[in-house]
Design a protein around this nucleic acid. Structure first.
Lengths: 171, 171
DNA sequence: GGTATTCTACTCGGATAGAAGTTGTCCGAGTCCCGCCGG
DNA sequence: CCGGCGGGACTCGGACAACTTCTATCCGAGTAGAATACC
């Protein structure tokens, strides 16, 4: 029950992308450099986000990653599911079916312990689904202030963030 | 974000102990055998439950583990916290403090992403706290039926579960 | 017969290997842009 | 002057190690109970 730190990286990367001009993209090196993270490993997580349909990637010169849909429609749960997988955290091994009292309860009825943990995970998911990348980006932007936002814009331009014309994007 | 399977084992073990007569105890071998699990590894988890104050242990002949307090006052969160630790699953590395825009936001304000994840974890905890070991034991007992409960009682007696007189218990 | 004592058997507890998953890195496949050539 | 073409550079994508964490196991420390010797 440890949240992978890749989730944090991915969430921050999505927030950065959400702060860009609509349609703009950034490559993995730039996204990693913004937080001084290992570029290659950041790229790995960005690939996972592409596979999950959260980001779309474009190769070749001037390519990079961009949000696959409006930031308002991307929740933190989408990000976590992309990195850690959408399956449940608690995987019932059905150990109640082993041992002397294995056949005492009917096998169809689900395990009560598993049900309780799945309910807790549902609450976790529901809470994360209420937070969108757009909200995160807005909160961060507010804290930056006008000066910080200008600095961010400069950095983005220096790293080649610009809306591009027709481009083939994967996934 | 994978729940350790030791949590499942521990929860089942607590449910078994809750089904015993008040004050009765079982040793690690018996608790492991009830679900055909490795005794040594099960013992490790039981030790963790003792350290967390969920169970109390007694050594020597006829010793074993028992619930440290009424099953009604032990929640599934207590069990999970005992096995995986009570700390948060999401550990913010504060990567926002690194990179070109590190100083844009004031450092005192917590990271919005971390806040969102901690809120989700709080919902998870709150849900687990509503489920007590007593409820789990009751649900399982209901599903067993009269025949299954009798079988369980026989098994418990065969494995030396009996309320003992004054005994020194640790933690 | 009652009591102190020793002895044994049984239990937990922490220290010790092995396996799995996560973290981190590298090089190849694919794509776009720019310059060049020909019409 | 305009369109097609080739080279080069840049980017993502998946395959490959190192490390941390979880899983599993063993043997020693400590205790309760019973059998024994003694009073």
């Amino acid at each position: 029950m440890k949240t992978l730190e890749g989730v944090e990286w991915a969430a921050h990367a999505c927030a950065v992308l959400a702060g860009l001009a609509p349609g703009a993209s950034l490559n993995a090196t730039a996204l990693a450099g913004f937080h001084e993270l290992p570029p290659a490993y950041m790229a790995k997580h960005l690939q996972a986000l592409v596979r999950a349909g959260v980001l779309s990637a474009s190769r070749g010169g001037g390519g990079g990653y961009r949000l696959a849909r409006p930031a308002r429609e991307i929740s933190l749960w989408d990000v976590q599911a992309a990195i850690e997988g959408p399956g449940p955290s608690f995987r019932c091994q059905d150990i109640r079916r082993q041992g002397p009292c294995a056949g005492c309860a009917s096998p169809d009825i689900p395990c009560d312990i598993a049900r309780a943990f799945h309910a807790a995970e549902a609450a976790y998911r529901a809470q994360l689904m209420t937070v969108s990348i757009a909200e995160i980006a807005k909160q961060v932007g507010d804290k930056y202030g006008p000066e910080g936002r200008a600095k961010f814009g400069d950095w983005a331009r220096e790293n080649g963030a610009s809306p591009l014309k027709g481009r083939r994007t994967t996934s």
